[in-house]
Design a protein around this nucleic acid. Sequence first.
RNA 1: GGUCCUGUGGUGUAGCGGCCUAACAUGCCUCCCUGUCACGGAGGAGACCGCCGGUUCGAAUCCGGUCAGGACCGCCA
Length: 559
Amino acid sequence: MTQVVVDPERTSQGSKALDVAGETRSEYVVQVRGTVAKRLPGTENPNMPTGAVEVIAADVEILNPSKTPPFPITDAITADEALRLKYRYLDIRRPAMRSRLELRHQVALFMRNFLSERGFIEVETPILTKSSPEGARDYLVPSRVWPGEFYALPQAPQQFKQLLMVAGLDRYFQIARCFRDEDLRGDRQPEFTQLDLEMSFVNEEDVMAVVEDLIVALIQTFTTKRIKQLPLPHIRFEDAMERYGIDRPDLRFDLPLKSLGDLALLGDFKVFHDAVKNGGMVKGLRIPGRGTATRRELDELTEFARTFGAKGLLTMQIGADGGVKSPITKFMSPADVQRIIAHMEGQPGDLIVFVADSEKVVNDVLWRMRVKMGEELGLIDPNEMALCWVVGFPMFEVIEENGKQRYHATHNPFSGVKPGHEALFETDPLKAEARQYDIVCNGYEIGGGSVRIHKAEVQRRVFQLLGLNDEQINEQFGHMLEAFEMGAPPHGGLAVGFDRLVMLLSDTENIREVMAFPKNANAQDLLMNAPSPVEREQLDELHIQVKPRPTPSPASQQS
RNA sequence: GGUCCUGUGGUGUAGCGGCCUAACAUGCCUCCCUGUCACGGAGGAGACCGCCGGUUCGAAUCCGGUCAGGACCGCCA
């Protein structure tokens, strides 16, 4: 960008440059012929990148005029996001958007070079592939050639990359588009990009080393932020759950959660007793300096806890003089209250909150409370990034589906089991540990992977435990099992959420800011106006009949 | 499917029962200025306050519904 000077004394003979320049308006496309010159003394502007020079125009031509844009094309003013998405090509003209897309490009380039130098090759895998029942909802694509049958868009290249290992590729990667038909969030889009990689003859440490080096190099290259701890700390799943209530802890600040254990049974506070009696737990969070919270502030915290499933919130305010204000004092002796405070390491002026419920509810409420407090208390240093590995995940968890309980793979059904734990499949599957590892940054899961199962009989057994019968296993995964019987090497890999990573590197809080053409919160493309109805003929060709809908789609209502 | 928040000139906001014949900034148009660079000066156009209904003597303002956008819950192996 630079400044053009149209000086009638210095334009070409007979040029209309001055008149033409006078007609130009915002966003006009112009062609200028002229001479680059140093600015006159006193007219330089050191605040601009090209403030020392200017172009002395000989001729000016308008190549294309422009309507007045629907919103100002500057970084300063933020227009409504729906408008930005509808006119995304204008939005991308804003320098901040452009620089985020450039960053995205540079990150992709860096990844390709980094992995290529280490012997990885990028292989593309199909976009039209097979529907699989596990995991997210598939996007389906009807087959014209095969009436009544469907392709699915890949949720991830998972099976293909493992088959590439069986194919002897040894080191694969791909910057891959993935599709999941689930509702959107600030950090979730129905189509998104993963850095997907897989390696043969490796253990957990080998994969983690490559990824850790890459992520650390990316942060050091593209941000000015410090990484809190290097090499990255490893946290076991159960420790993460105990201390932070979530398997993707934000380690930029401390504020650990703490279980009361048997201390919950002191006195006769029924809520605590019941939680323990019903197999649940009581856990607390110490909030420094909030001991003077008002009634209203405490109510707000309680409401926050209720939003995420807690039936209530027990608060304990410690006065500057050490005096305790808490509903629990009616049910517990002062000495017992002091034991609990000591256990929670409470200081004068602190507020301690407790949730008593099932382990799931307790952790779910308290991890959010912890993050909220970390933000509110200003404990987060914006110049720091805190990463860690989370390891030691269980193979299975129990989920409820249509009122029935069943095992569910905590990550994916191809994750390997810790050596020696296979026997637990037959005795206590919930104790079996997966060879799974997640990489977490600032409370975001930015990547996850595992050393895979590479033996057919182990894989078959896992599918069985997940509730698939032999027929389903053969129909859906027969090709995998067969491949494992034909010289499959041990292998493992990982996938990084590319958009989410670029989002963190660019210090934005919304994945849409780092995507050129994202969908809105209702999965619509406001620029192309998709999805939209299609012609009857198209559907006929695809052997598809659409059920009548009571209300027309929003897209078909727009002009 | 649910909860919450937001809809006021092109854009961003203020106003939150009567001072509103709706304010401010910016943008837009016309004219003036011409070494400016967030230029400056003068003037002007532009909004039935998302939509429908209700309460009220009176509604941008309160209530209900609806539509649109966003955040979150459910969902996301």
